[in-house]
């Protein structure tokens, strides 16, 4: 560390070069992201496209309207439930899968499996949902298989108790390939010498995993988690919109699907913007929280 600092001090006079590098990105972001922020004012207006940003000022009315909707509370509950489980399983499953793949002896097969599991990431939810609705219906392929092995049919899409899990598991199934690839990459960078000396100390395969692999994987896990925390209120509009039905609104309706139905008939930009702003505040809080937690608990800095 000391060495690093002294070297930097020597180069301090060249800071302007760093700033110059930052400049193009700053300019682009300023123009295309910061300037349009003035549009957020419509969250506090009764927006009318004809009047534009000079529409009637209504204060918090849009937020009050939203919070007073009888079903708003349940959509928050559903959103958090689905999003948190997606987040948790979205860590456990790819990490487990990466660990298992890492244990495989055949490198060729490993690469092949890795390619296969990454593929669903390329498919949109519209298509994926089409296939899932087909195979998960009460007489679909999955239930036929369950019946075959003596299990009763499960109403994956129509039972309010089951539906959130259908959503969570199918999402994890679709996206775990991405996480697996990342974790696997992190795994390959672990110094093989550590394992060799562990073997010399008589450590079993399982012990190696728990005492070497997982601790060394932790920073990557934390990074991935923190990066996904910011989007926790996006429980997956495309997916749920294409899979849900009125019977499961009770447990499956999330903020985004709800707002979409609310504003479906005409573009209710004001309410939409209000929701976006609300989500931004919650996300900002969560990101800050996770940033602090990562720093405190794991001594790891994201930014």
């Amino acid at each position: 560390m000391a060495k690093q600092k002294s070297a930097f001090r020597k180069k301090f006079g060249l800071q302007w070069q760093y700033l110059l590098m930052l400049l193009p990105g700053m300019i682009f972001v300023f123009i295309f992201s910061y300037i349009p922020l003035y549009g957020l004012v419509i969250a506090f207006q009764d927006y009318n496209v004809g009047l534009g940003f000079h529409s009637e000022w209504v204060g918090m009315k849009n937020f009050i309207f939203l919070f007073n909707q009888p079903t708003f509370a349940r959509t928050i509950r559903n959103t958090l439930f689905i999003a948190i489980w997606k987040l948790v399983l979205g860590i456990i499953v790819p990490v487990t899968f990466a660990l298992l793949l890492n244990e495989m002896r055949s490198n060729k097969l490993k690469r092949f499996y890795q390619t296969l599991i990454y593929i669903p990431n390329f498919l949109s939810w519209v298509i994926m949902a089409g296939v899932l609705l087909d195979i998960l219906s009460t007489n679909g392929a999955v239930n036929r298989f369950l019946n075959l092995i003596g299990v009763d049919s499960v109403n994956f899409l129509g039972d309010p108790d089951v539906f959130p899990w259908t959503v969570i598991i199918s999402d994890v199934w679709k996206t775990f390939g991405y996480g697996t690839v990342i974790y696997l990459a992190a795994l390959t960078s672990i110094d093989p010498g550590l394992y060799e000396s562990a073997v010399l100390d008589g450590a079993s395969r399982a012990q190696q995993v728990f005492y070497i692999t997982i601790p060394l994987l932790l920073p990557t896990i934390i990074l991935m988690t923190v990066l996904s925390l910011g989007s926790i209120l996006n429980a997956g509009f495309d997916q749920i919109y294409n899979m849900y039905s009125p019977v499961v609104w009770e447990t499956g309706d999330i903020i985004d699907t709800y707002v979409f139905r609310l504003g479906f008939q005409q573009a209710q930009y004001s309410v939409g913007t209000a929701v976006g702003l609300f989500k931004s505040f919650v996300s900002a809080f969560l990101v800050l929280l996770s940033y602090v937690l990562a720093d405190k608990l794991a001594g790891y800095r994201i930014l």
Binding site: F65, P70, T71, V247, L262, F264, Q266, Q268
Partner: peptide, 21 residues
Amino acid sequence: LRSAGSTLDDILKEGFTKIII
């Protein structure tokens, strides 16, 4: 009806479905 019409119909549809099944 313009701002809440579809939500209002949704409430009914959800309830009707529950009664039917």
